[in-house]
């Protein structure tokens, strides 16, 4: 009897750990990072080992799980460029060239550590399955695997704060678990409208020793857009969405 009680007690304790639904947790992390449909401004800063910086300002809008577009507002040399992502499809529009061209998610339109899929990030749950969850102190460690071959990183290790359910660190890995880059989420800020999330995202990469890239987020707001905004034909008109 005593043994049965001990077993039952052990099971009762164990249930909360095994009951964590990985997919649900990842979805919650996504929602805590951003509303499903939103607009936001970002400043991207590439920092070289000697401290030299180059800055870009972007306006982004997203709808649902697979539609996102980003427009470059500065510097003048990049102004008017826009990138669109519709699921696994990505395009770049350069005003001078005058027509959108398909690009690949691993390319970088800005140079530096961030690539196109970092700039046009979809929900993690839309691109990755949770393979395993581990608990490490105040954090969950989610081991994610890409759902398809077209996703930029084959594997991801995501550390998330247990209370806030927000990511603190992400490692992007190849199929063979080689580290491509690390993202650090910093400086949690209240953006209003119930959006409380990191306002700074820093990244470094063993492939770019001494370099780092930083995203600073501003004016993240829930906003709905028509599906037609996320089309090739609309790309030259993204600026008209800004208020």
């Amino acid at each position: 009897m005593k043994k049965i009680l001990i077993c039952l007690f052990t099971l009762l304790i164990a249930i909360p750990v095994y009951a964590i639904d990985g997919a649900q947790l990842l979805k919650q992390i996504d929602r805590n990072l951003n509303p499903e449909s939103y607009e936001m401004y970002r400043k991207l800063i590439n920092v070289e080992p000697d401290g030299r910086k180059k800055e870009y300002t972007l306006y982004s809008v997203k709808k649902g799980v697979d539609k996102v577009v980003a427009l470059f507002l500065a510097p003048a040399s990049e102004k008017g460029r826009s990138t669109l992502r519709l699921g696994d499809n990505m395009w770049l529009y350069i005003p001078n060239v005058g027509k959108p061209v398909r690009i690949t998610s691993l390319q970088s339109v800005v140079g530096g550590v961030f690539n196109n899929s970092d700039i046009l990030q979809l929900d993690y749950a839309a691109e990755y399955d949770v393979e395993k969850i581990e608990e490490a102190g105040n954090e969950y460690l989610l081991l994610l695997k890409a759902k398809t071959k077209t996703v930029a990183y084959d594997r991801i290790k995501l550390w998330a704060d247990k209370n806030r359910k927000l990511p603190t660190k992400i490692e992007c890995l190849t199929e063979a678990s080689m580290l491509i880059k690390t993202l650090y989420f910093k400086e949690i800020k209240d953006f209003g409208g119930g959006i409380v999330r990191p306002s700074v995202l820093e990244t470094d990469s063993p492939l770019y020793k001494g370099y780092k890239s930083i995203f600073i987020f501003a004016n993240i707001k829930q906003r709905d857009f028509k599906d037609e905004v996320f089309t090739l034909t609309f790309m030259p008109n993204i600026e008209s969405l800004r208020k």
């Binding site: 401004y41 400043k43 800063i45 920092v47 300002t57 003048a76 306002s199 501003a218 800004r242």
Partner: peptide, 17 residues
């Protein structure tokens, strides 16, 4: 380093470049 001035993203009705 992490300063993001809101005036940088204000929309103007005109643009010259």
């Amino acid at each position: 380093e992490y300063k993001f001035d809101i005036s940088e993203i204000e929309k103007k009705p005109y643009h010259i470049g």
